[in-house]
């Protein structure tokens, strides 16, 4: 039974995961006992009291108040235990320690943006230190999304009109998946991200070296950096292979066939429009799942990306 319950759950990688799992196990085991008990009783009755003749006479047993009370009160006690247990862990889940490290999270169709205290931004990658409480302050730029990390047993809806928050303390270095669990349209099931849990030093290193704005770099290098930071590479290859979106290799200057039958020249304006309003013109044979980067990338950054794409011939 314990093995089965362990198998059912993802690895427990946060401080409160264990407590959640214990209640999960408790409910499973007690339900199992009830279900098996009642089912066996039912099957036993069906066999023991099977009809022998059509003239069978059955006793008149119309009710029994003691029994009614017993089978109301015992389950009542059990559910009160489950309720209190669930509530107390829940309270811990929604009460972050005051010294938690804060990260600002923006969800939008269909990507996750993470803003750190030093101005760093990462897209679809959340970097956090190990053994330190982390509090995420979240909001959405469009419809409702929901931030879910099974390994940490946390989930919280991300709303357009207010902030919500979630906190966890990761106990193990490594990677965990983030899912969007509030249905948000076409690419809802692609709205994934990864949490990278580092040691404290590695995390600090990461903050120093990555995710900077790169304003002082030459445009092409800055463009390459932005393309990586903004998770463009998860959908666009630079080596000609086909991912979710068309490859950037050899794209510059080509004629792009569109879903509506027209063609358009792959030039500065097209790239700019593709980034800010991706569904305005959809490349033939691809799904309209690219998130809009309006509000994420500014004009200078888009310029840099354009310069970078030009070099991929």
């Amino acid at each position: 039974m314990n093995r089965l319950i362990e198998y059912m759950l993802p690895p427990a990688k946060s401080t409160l995961a264990g407590e959640t799992d214990a209640l999960f196990a408790f409910i499973n085991i007690s339900s199992f006992i009830f279900i098996i008990g009642i089912t066996l009783t039912m099957l036993y009755f069906a066999w023991r009291y099977r009809r022998k003749s059509d003239d069978d006479v059955t006793p008149v047993i119309s009710h029994n108040n003691i029994l009614e009370i017993t089978w109301s009160v015992i389950p009542l006690i059990l559910v009160i235990i489950v309720f209190s247990w669930g509530y107390s862990t829940y309270m811990k889940k929604i009460s972050p320690p005051s010294d938690a490290y804060e990260v600002r999270v923006v969800g939008k169709s269909w990507l996750w943006e993470f803003h750190y205290d030093n101005g760093n931004v990462s897209v679809n990658e959340l970097h956090v230190p190990e053994n330190r409480p982390v509090k995420l302050i979240m909001s959405s730029d469009d419809v409702i999304h929901s931030f879910y990390v099974p390994d940490f047993r946390v989930k919280m809806d991300v709303l357009p009109n207010r902030y919500t928050s979630v906190w966890f303390e990761a106990t193990e270095q490594g990677e965990s998946t983030v899912y969007c669990t509030e249905y948000c349209g076409t690419a809802h099931s692609n709205m994934l991200a990864t949490v990278h849990v580092h040691s404290q030093e590695d995390f600090e290193d990461w903050l120093e070296t990555s995710g900077g704005s790169g304003e002082d770099l030459p445009p092409v290098e800055r463009g390459e950096m932005l393309v990586q930071q903004n998770a463009c590479m998860t959908c666009h290859s630079t080596d000609g292979s086909r991912l979710t979106g068309p490859t950037f290799q050899g794209a510059w200057g080509s004629d792009v066939p569109l879903e509506n039958g027209e063609t358009v020249q792959f030039d500065e304006n097209y790239v700019r429009e593709s980034i800010l309003e991706p569904n305005a013109k959809v490349h033939q044979g691809f799904q309209p799942v690219m998130p809009s980067y309006a509000g994420t990338l500014d004009d200078r950054q888009i310029d840099a990306i354009i310069e970078y794409i030009k070099t991929l011939q």
Binding site: E19, G86, Y90, S146, V154, T181
Partner: peptide
């Protein structure tokens, strides 16, 4: 019984949706 499971607050946070 699985309704009891998702009625328990801390567990539902994990199982919801």
């Amino acid at each position: 019984f699985t309704g009891i499971m998702v009625g328990a607050l801390s567990v539902d946070i994990h199982l919801h949706d």
